[in-house]
């Protein structure tokens, strides 16, 4: 098995050399780049996934909450959508260092000490704000009759949301949610600034050692592939899940 992988790797490098890329450099850093891609994927999947769970209550709070709940939810999403992700990341990562004693007392220091966890934490807060805004918009496009019909059938509000409102809102919000996922893949490069070795971090490391612009080309291709794959998968997903809404063309 190992020898097969080695052979595949050697073949790949030879092929890359043939199309004019620096195969020595790739032999040295290629696997690191794959590690970087893995870290980037972890960052994105964790933050967007957890963000999706948190965005629902926030969106519903905007629609259903009383004056103060709705306002608090609005303030949250306004703050995270109105400030740069880089500033938020610094605020969490460096800001947490200032509260080290308190965080240690709470038993949370191990979490905030780690750049990767800090990045996931910040990205989650950020994407939650964007996703909740998308979902709020989606919920509010639904006609009021949907809720009234649910009530007339004797469904509780919770049940009405779970079985009637949420599935429809998710369908409406599907396309912008896909865009948000793509935005997060791109934004996750910011993690490299706080010493996380994601794809961008590995690229910067390789560049600072080799001073060969080619590494940026590899990174560009890898990011474009990730974005393109998500875009295509999402297109398929949307066509499948929203097929009841499709107009025949």
């Amino acid at each position: 098995m190992q020898s097969l992988l080695d052979m595949l790797g050697a073949g790949f490098l030879q092929l890359m050399g043939l199309i004019g890329l620096n195969s020595d450099l790739m032999a040295r850093y290629g696997l690191r780049f794959l590690d970087g891609v893995w870290v980037t994927l972890q960052l994105v999947v964790l933050s967007v996934g957890i963000g999706a769970l948190l965005a629902w209550p926030l969106a519903i709070a905007r629609v259903e909450g009383g004056k103060w709940t709705a306002r608090a939810a609005f303030a949250y999403s306004y703050f995270f959508r109105g400030t740069p992700l880089l500033a938020q990341t610094f605020l969490v990562y460096y800001g947490a260092g200032q509260f080290r004693e308190q965080l240690t007392a709470l038993g949370l220091w191990w979490f905030f000490r780690d750049a990767f966890y800090c990045a996931v934490f910040t990205f989650t807060l950020n994407t939650t704000a964007y996703q909740s805004e998308i979902l709020r918009g989606a919920i509010q496009t639904l006609p009021i009759g949907q809720m009234e019909a649910a009530k007339a059938l004797g469904l509780s509000k919770l049940k009405a949301y779970w079985t009637i409102i949420m599935p429809q809102a998710a369908g409406i919000g599907l396309r912008p949610l896909g865009n948000e996922l793509i935005l997060m893949i791109k934004s996750s490069a910011i993690a490299s600034v706080i010493t996380v070795y994601d794809l961008m971090g590995v690229t910067r490391l390789a560049f600072s050692r080799s001073y060969d612009m080619e590494v940026y080309l590899w990174a560009a291709v890898l990011y474009l592939v990730m974005v393109e794959v998500v875009r295509r998968v999402w297109d398929r997903l949307e066509r499948r899940l929203n097929r009841h809404l499709l107009v025949s063309r």
């Binding site: 893949i185 791109k186 490069a189 910011i190 961008m200 560049f207 612009m213 393109e228």
Partner: peptide
Amino acid sequence: TVFRGLPELLTLFIVYY
């Protein structure tokens, strides 16, 4: 496709370096 798909940070480094 290219400039919407690349991270802004990467574009910045490519342009600068």
